[in-house]
Design a protein around this nucleic acid. Structure first.
Lengths: 240, 240
DNA sequence: CGATGACTTGACTGAGTTCAAAAGCTGTGG
DNA sequence: CCACAGCTTTTGAACTCAGTCAAGTCATCG
């Protein structure tokens, strides 16, 4: 189930937090964690589970969810391969992190991770910077939800997922057909991301298909046929 | 214009970041900054101004704004007395921080502040924790914008501002009439916070007044007459 | 006093929700 | 292989909340 962390041939080492550490810190970090496979739907942290867990995502997608008293959910963030998933010092945290797909993670106990940060400033600095970027991303996202139309929101989310899953939208990736991938999220989850209803999301997908911007396939398969078109639709309204 | 920082009788020392520092770090910090008065409307950081500034807010309200190519704005965060305002390591930051009211701040040059964090881990840790809290707050806010009705949003924002300005909603504060204060934000700014139009905000104010929950006065004066009622309206829909 | 800007109010419109039903998938078991 | 159950997704029609446009009122200040 759990294995020792072996960094030598890790697929995300260069871009994950570990890549920014000194060799000795990286070694210490590898010593206190384990490589695990996590089934889809499992809660990584939050909810009623007190012992906090910090993870570095090697493969898969995680959603950060705000669950309400009335049962409705709001997805307030998505994490992809190489992202750090956790809430250090998270006594009063109200969020929940849940695996959307099967995951590969390097998992660390929260307290152990926090202790290591105390003695290894480069680790703390790295996670700190990631947190600042997450904060920027959250605010960017917030703006999107507040001000864009349903169509713009769906296009924006597809673009974001495509960028993360297909490794950037450069010319080569496009030509190599990398813009064909399986959507990790259900319609309901997409709606929960965007502050919409699933019917609305479905209608927007239909519109994008009708416009020839995307095509859908089996098992949530998605092909972005017209990146330019999707980008324009994500940006929204009148951009002269 | 600028004065040396004198912490002895600082009104926010206990709750501001400085209160969590060792005496020596606090002293170092005081040495590299200046106490300033900032007029309403001035931009603290962001926009075209390259030399980043970090501040600790002693008095006043700051808004974090996302400005769009098309000119529309979205307020993605508010900062109050004792909050830290700044974006360390903020090369690509797209945000702007602007004084909503007249401010009293302790201001530090970004680079100097970053350097001090390198040599004083307690400072870095403190700001790190604040950032984590800001991230939680941003996500909470995001949820609010995504899922609540106009009425619920306005009530939520009023409650948030009342809590910050009137120092918590405890029984004593209520009885002492502390729930009477001047709204720092214009209708337009409130709308920009909530992803609404100013007309909608105005109508919601009218509804709250009609229900006897709030009363408005001169110069953006606001009295919360029924905290309970406001709380219920902020929570939203059917909570059995 | 009139002028400027902030706020309020009204009538109409439309994007997105809601409710309802139908159509597609996926997997199981005969 | 088909039939079925349990899903997710699509589509339709009616409704509603907030946006839009347009006056009108209220403050503040020279």
């Amino acid at each position: 189930m759990t294995l020792r962390i072996r960094c030598q041939n890790c697929s995300v080492r260069q871009i994950a937090p570990c890549g920014a550490l000194t060799a000795s810190t990286a070694h210490e970090l590898a010593r206190i964690g384990y490589r695990r496979r996590v089934p889809a739907g499992q809660v990584l942290y939050g909810g009623v589970r007190p012992p906090q867990i910090c993870s570095i995502l090697v493969e898969g997608v995680v959603k950060l969810v705000n669950v309400n008293p009335d049962g409705s959910q709001q997805i307030v963030g998505l994490q992809f391969a190489s992202d750090f998933v956790g809430r250090p010092f998270g006594e009063g945290a109200t969020l929940m992190a849940e695996a959307v797909t099967v995951l590969d993670v390097c998992a660390f106990s929260g307290p152990a991770f926090e202790t290591l940060m105390l003695t290894h400033p480069d680790l703390e600095r790295t996670i700190f910077k990631r947190t600042l970027n997450d904060l920027d991303a959250a605010r960017e996202w917030m703006f999107m939800i507040a001000r864009k139309t349903a169509g713009e929101r769906v296009a924006s989310l597809l673009l974001l997922i495509a960028r993360k899953l297909a490794g950037g939208l450069d010319e080569h990736a496009q030509k190599a057909g990398l813009l064909e991938f399986n959507l990790p999220l259900s319609r309901t989850e997409i709606a929960e991301c965007l502050g919409l209803r699933l019917e609305t999301v479905s209608r927007q997908f239909a519109a994008l298909k009708a416009a020839g911007v995307i095509a859908t396939g089996r098992r949530r398969g998605l092909r972005v046929c017209d990146v330019q078109g999707l980008t324009v639709r994500a940006r929204g309204a009148a951009v002269d």
